[in-house]
Design a protein around this nucleic acid. Structure first.
Lengths: 190, 190
DNA sequence: GGCTACCTACCTGACGGCAGGTAGACAATG
DNA sequence: CATTGTCTACCTGCCGTCAGGTAGGTAGCC
């Protein structure tokens, strides 16, 4: 199966980074999980940095496609803002449910000061993509100056990310749910 | 100087963890920074976990004292809620300014899945302490049911933490400032 | 005063283990 | 024959940790 091994390396690596962080990702454990020898990983990804960049790049791409898919064929009435944001917060919720994992980019954000530059660039792209999507959703209701939407979207993205980190630190999804509910009550999240 | 070496170990370790994380803290580098040999650290802290727990415990205690100090001798009119929250957000801001560091507990929150239990307990204490203080500040305005204050405080704590993580990931304090401003505009932060 | 005993605050030197990474052989496939 | 994918074997370097030693101070006792 061409490309299968590469696929399984990336999948396993992603799950590990979301669990233990980039520093907690080891080629030996990774190889054990995939069922090959650690040296073989270098065939696909010359260095650890290359692997990290590849999985984050694909992560951002996939979620961009997923989020865009949510907007497809939308009436644009703005009646669905709340529903869309519910889908958005559920996205972060599901990673917590999956072994108390953190969003890949969120985890790497924390580790930023010991990461290669290529990964940092992808972290920035993750933020811009999320904020862009949220701004579009917020704009569905109608007007709102573009700059206002943009800054509110950035706030919303940071708030949801923070809720995930805090809940992750306490290993308790209920904490996440409560915080999101409070965001909604305060009007920050539609 | 009795206790001086122990003090310097803890200070250097704390700064490193806020910079590179718990995984990025090495006894050899730490010893080099303090000016002793790495083995000597074990004289003060038997294991790495003990050191980590000690610095986080003190971190929580000190910020608890600092925040309580802000409330001392307050008129309680509630006119100062905004000012107090400004002091609070400035606290997180200053760690970003200091070498793009993260709040110690925030960093450890991300690494939670590979941390000894003693440290995890202190992370929980950090959250409870912050939420308790914020709830008190929010309550200064007057009424508000206790449960409502509590959940709003939890949201505010998570939001500010998230703003710090996102700004840290982009290595840009301006990002933090913009997000906090948007929180204020949305009414989440007084 | 002198001796013993214990303490603090480090040190030297090493241990086993794991990290990412490399060189080169080899079998399978086209 | 050439390419692809994986292997074995190994490298250097760092990791936390430990055993054991030592210089200097202090306290108690004859």
């Amino acid at each position: 199966m061409a490309g299968d091994t590469r696929e399984r390396i990336m999948e396993s690596a992603r799950l590990t980074v979301q669990d233990l962080g980039y520093g907690g990702l080891s080629f030996r454990e990774l190889a054990k999980d995939v069922g090959i020898k650690s040296a073989s990983i270098h065939y696909y990804f010359p260095t650890k940095g290359d692997l990290g960049e590849a999985i984050l790049r694909r992560y951002v791409d996939r979620y961009a496609a997923f989020l865009d898919g949510l907007l497809d064929g939308l009436p644009g009435t703005g009646a669905d803002r709340a529903a869309l944001m519910g889908r958005y917060t559920d996205m972060f919720r599901s990673t917590l449910l999956n072994g108390n994992r953190l969003c890949l980019a969120g985890m790497l954000s924390a580790e930023r000061n010991e990461l290669p530059a290529g990964i940092c660039a992808e972290i920035v792209r993750w933020g811009a993509m999320n904020e862009g999507w949220i701004a579009r959703v917020l704009g569905l209701g109608g007007a709102g100056d573009r700059e206002g939407l943009r800054s509110r979207a950035a706030a919303l993205f940071a708030a949801v990310s923070g809720a995930q980190v805090v809940a992750h630190g306490r290993n308790d999804v209920a904490v996440y749910d409560d915080i999101i509910a409070a965001y909604r009550a305060s009007g920050l999240v539609p």
